[in-house]
């Protein structure tokens, strides 16, 4: 018999403690147990990136990630990026450039882009493509997503400049 244990971690900047079984995968913990359905299941085998979340500042595929790995870690999902009233610059940029069509890849794209911009605030095209190559999109041909990430990088830089003023 597998038995659940209490698992504590930080989720979208808030501490959570939840009972988790040994075999639980992070994606199921987020979607099924915690009701955070922004993170998508595309392939369930690490190929599409729809399940991308950020664990301790790094983009990972939640569908391959044993939930127990996040003990005492900080997890960020698309729900923690911004809210409908207060969109993150990345979300704004995706909307403004038309980088969202069916939207299934979008949460994963946003999280991969977020991880990239945290590490590389001013990425060139190649760096963006490398960081997002693990996020498949069937709709957009990636053109407007590339544009959106660049626009978001610019917005984030601007808001930093404004804060400094």
């Amino acid at each position: 018999m597998s038995k659940g244990k209490e698992l504590s971690f930080t989720l979208n900047n808030k501490p959570v403690t939840v009972e988790v079984e040994p075999h639980t995968i992070l994606l199921d913990l987020l979607r099924e147990k915690l009701g955070l359905t922004g993170t998508k299941r595309g392939c369930g085998e690490g190929e599409c990136g729809a399940c991308t979340v950020i664990v301790n500042n790094e983009a990972v595929n939640a569908c391959l990630y044993p939930a127990w790995k996040v003990e005492n870690c900080s997890v960020l999902t698309v729900e923690g990026l911004g809210s409908e009233e207060n969109l993150h610059p990345l979300q704004e940029a995706f909307l403004e450039t038309g980088a969202v069509q069916c939207g299934f890849c979008t949460p994963g794209m946003l999280m991969s882009s977020y991880a990239l911009l945290q590490k590389t605030p001013d990425p060139d095209d190649d760096e963006i493509k490398t960081a997002l190559a693990g996020n498949l999109c069937r709709c957009t041909g990636y053109v407007k997503i590339l544009e959106a990430v660049k626009k978001a990088a610019y917005k984030m830089k601007q808001s930093e400049v404004n804060e400094e003023k």
Binding site: E45, C48, K129, A133, L136, I145
Partner: peptide, 17 residues
């Protein structure tokens, strides 16, 4: 039948359009 064997273009496969 899955995305590991049925390959579709990634970000890196797409040129400027």
């Amino acid at each position: 039948p899955g995305l590991s064997n049925y390959l579709i273009p990634t970000f890196k496969d797409m040129p400027e359009i």
